[in-house]
Design a protein around this nucleic acid. Sequence first.
DNA 1: TAGTGGTCTAGACCACCGG
DNA 2: CGGTGGTCTAGACCACTAG
Lengths: 250, 250
Amino acid sequence: MGTARYLEIAETLRQAILGGELPVGGRLPSESALMTRWGASRGTVRQAVALLTSEGLVGSRQGARRIVLSRERRHSFAELNSFAQWAHGLGLAVTSRILLRARRPAGPEEAEGLGVPEGSEILHVLRVRHLDGEPTMLERTAYAQWAAPAVEALPEECVSIMDSLARDAGIVAQYGEHLIDAVAAGGQDAHLLGVRRGSPLLRQRHVSLDQGGRAIEWSDDRYRPGSVTFSTSNSAAAAPLGRRIGDRAV
Amino acid sequence: MGTARYLEIAETLRQAILGGELPVGGRLPSESALMTRWGASRGTVRQAVALLTSEGLVGSRQGARRIVLSRERRHSFAELNSFAQWAHGLGLAVTSRILLRARRPAGPEEAEGLGVPEGSEILHVLRVRHLDGEPTMLERTAYAQWAAPAVEALPEECVSIMDSLARDAGIVAQYGEHLIDAVAAGGQDAHLLGVRRGSPLLRQRHVSLDQGGRAIEWSDDRYRPGSVTFSTSNSAAAAPLGRRIGDRAV
DNA sequence: TAGTGGTCTAGACCACCGG
DNA sequence: CGGTGGTCTAGACCACTAG
């Protein structure tokens, strides 16, 4: 079985919205129409439209037909956690370079993020990432000790650490927690990103957890001004998060 | 009928998580256990845990028991769209002051955000908002022409414009679309927020839509550095968005 | 008032995880 | 292997919206 029935229905509707056949502000087919159209039960149809609702494409109110809210594609989970996968989905070339890799005691913020005692050993990694050749993001990551050997084995130019860890070491990120704010570029930030000291940077701090809820990494990622925008939509129930480059929706 | 069955189940589990009875990293009761415990069908139980999953409290994988990921409360929809409601939930005092209210032609960004032709008339509002007396956020909002009279009728010190519009004019925001990035403070920003020119500001641009998908307002909100952080969690399916102040989770 | 979505039930088969 | 969650069906009643 390739894909589930409800995913098939959702994907077809999504394409109709993205393609403009279902215009923004217009109405979605009713559940009963979709049931006969696809020969599916109501539960399956509702699962499909619930997915689109959670993506912010569709709005829903009891008693009224669902309406199309937006025609912008949103991110999958993998894309939010992985810069490489996100950029790949946009057709942009990503290069990365690890500048520093060292074991050291966890500072207070790293310790809290990883859920380990302050001062316990972590693997610190400093990494710059380029988008189409432009330095775009600076990553300061603390890896949990149990994941450190796998990270130390990676090449300096490794494009996606998370993908490599999944492939080579069976370490898979399942959940993430993210904090987004703005900070001024420090001396190192300015130098490595090619901006002036004090420039506004968009900062995304996040922790990645594996299937069992164990913390894999805690990271402080800083984006060059204007390079990336996070986007999100919300309605009564759901609010997925996404990212943008310049004015292009992703 | 007060609340739906699945909301009751979800709320009980949520309280157990927030209260620490279901510790982070621990396992949730199985679906069948919840079915007998509540005398509910499987569908209803699944609806409850799906809600918790979408809130980032619970992680889910086929074949394995669900686990508790986090014990942080997240935002409701209303809180994401309304600064006043969000601050109120934290027990913070909000004051607001409208500095400028003028009809004028829509600029390119306002026109695109509202989905109206460039140059058509909108109501521009400039507003400062204080948290516990500190200037925290600067709002530059364009209201759609049909909503303008209701906004013009509001007092200068109106704490929550959206709440007032709902109460007095029946204009209710149902959906929102948000863009988050970082910008340098301009002259007016710096002056009104009490920061230095060029300071990094967290910017949230957003459009609010009513029940029918009509745009009510397009807004460019800028937060003083360090005052507010957006937070989000993600897993395979969902990624709700939230906000923080300093280090306090909200 | 007819149509629509929100909630709920009681079954079923399957894929996956863990011991 | 048994337990668990993922998917799907075929019904039902209700609350709300829209014309």
